[in-house]
Design a protein around this nucleic acid. Structure first.
Lengths: 228, 228
DNA sequence: TCTTGAATTTAGCCCTGGCTAATAATCCTA
DNA sequence: TAGGATTATTAGCCAGGGCTAAATTCAAGA
């Protein structure tokens, strides 16, 4: 029994769960809850419980009933492998196939499960080994290391700061669309005019002296950094 | 019941069966037998019987017990869609990612199930709408039409003929390897010196006046045409 | 026509990964 | 600290796609 437990490349479902746990851990710091993963993957909580148990069997997560799951080292490696593929593919779709900003996510989501490491390597080469994808997210190295991220959202900025957009959330196509049109993309500089605690609106000026009033959801989708 | 019977994009397994039936029909002219499909997909005959019944349900094949399956119009369309993807992807891997002749098949086999029609279209554009893949196989149009093929294998050639290689079988990497090294690739001209019925060996001369003695398996893997 | 071996199908089972409904923990708040 | 509300888990079910073993059909030669 358990003959093949150790070395098979995970199914695409397993990969999706690992990525979800990884992403949730990144911006919560703690274990991924059943519900959060269920929501993210549009799946019932019961399915998540079930999968957590199986991932544990496979040695990909540590899981404690009622307490959520965290990735093991192997799980993290696997998740990063997928993230790397995803971000490289997004870059390719945008730069070589003429996709728009908003379209790349879904296509990459499917492709990342189908490509081999060999493909990934050659793609990275074709693209000139980029270290960030089009949304500004860092691309993990083939060895599984990832740049530390000291960026924060515009909501957390302070009036008067001069900041550079480091990345934007890539989950909502409509927002990407809006931001893309106004050229609020990674690399651009912003000066923060006002951060209104009252309603969460952030007012910024951009490089062309355009002024943008951004509601809380948008402000939370734009990540910035002090310099670099 | 049968709520979703009509418009869902087939799973990758279903696609593999459709392609197998299509390929077998192409070079046998008649219905695909359970065994032939089982062999081609490395699957048990029982699984094939099972799938034939389901494909019939889905309206993708006509199936009669003990008699094999043939594609319906819808099944053929679907199969050609996959073939088109497969051949475009192979072309891309070779031309843009530096893959070798022998490597492209397996990678394409996985990718063809993950890409969208949109991707396929843009890829075709990037490649300049090629009409043949690197092995010489014609690429079906987006509308599902396919060039008629009047080529035949070297085994069926006659001494004295001057022929052009139209395509080579892409299933066996070792053979592709061998042929690639000797530059016996689509587009090259050959003159047939001898076709020995005794042992199936075919002797040909190529454009550089090199002479090749090809055993039956190799001779059957090389397709040629009179002119064009 | 009968026999027999190959091809096929049937029966019954397995695993993955979904789901709902019912039950149990946990947490938060009065 | 005791409920409720929320979150998780369990139990039991389903469909897709595999498999093996046993039974059946077909076809071909004696």
């Amino acid at each position: 029994m358990n003959d093949l437990a150790e070395n098979r490349s995970p199914s695409s479902s397993v990969g999706d769960y690992l990525k979800a746990v990884w992403e949730l851990a990144v911006d919560s710091g703690s274990a991924a809850s059943t519900k959060s993963v269920a929501t993210r993957l549009s799946v019932s909580p019961a399915s998540v419980t079930n999968m957590f148990a199986r991932l544990q069997e496979m040695g990909l997560v540590r899981y404690e009933r009622y307490r959520g799951a965290t990735l093991t080292e192997r799980g993290r490696k696997e998740a990063l492998r997928l993230v790397r593929r995803h971000r490289l593919i997004e870059t390719f779709l945008l730069e070589h196939l003429g996709y728009d900003w908003q379209e790349v996510h879904d296509e990459a989501e499917r492709l990342e499960h189908a490509v081999s490491d060999g493909f990934t390597g050659r793609l990275a080469e074709l693209l000139g080994h980029p270290d960030h994808d089009p949304h500004g997210d860092p691309i993990p190295s083939a060895e599984g290391t990832l740049e530390v991220d000291d960026s924060f959202t515009l909501s957390q900025a302070v009036a008067g700061q001069r900041l550079r957009i480091s990345k934007v959330r890539d989950e909502d196509a409509a927002m990407l669309d809006y931001l893309g049109e106004r050229n609020l993309v990674p690399g651009r500089w912003l000066s923060v005019r006002e951060v209104r605690t009252l309603d969460g609106v952030v007012i910024v000026g951009d490089e062309e002296a355009e002024v943008h009033a951004l509601g809380e959801p948008l402000a939370r989708s734009i990540f910035v950094r002090n310099d670099s």
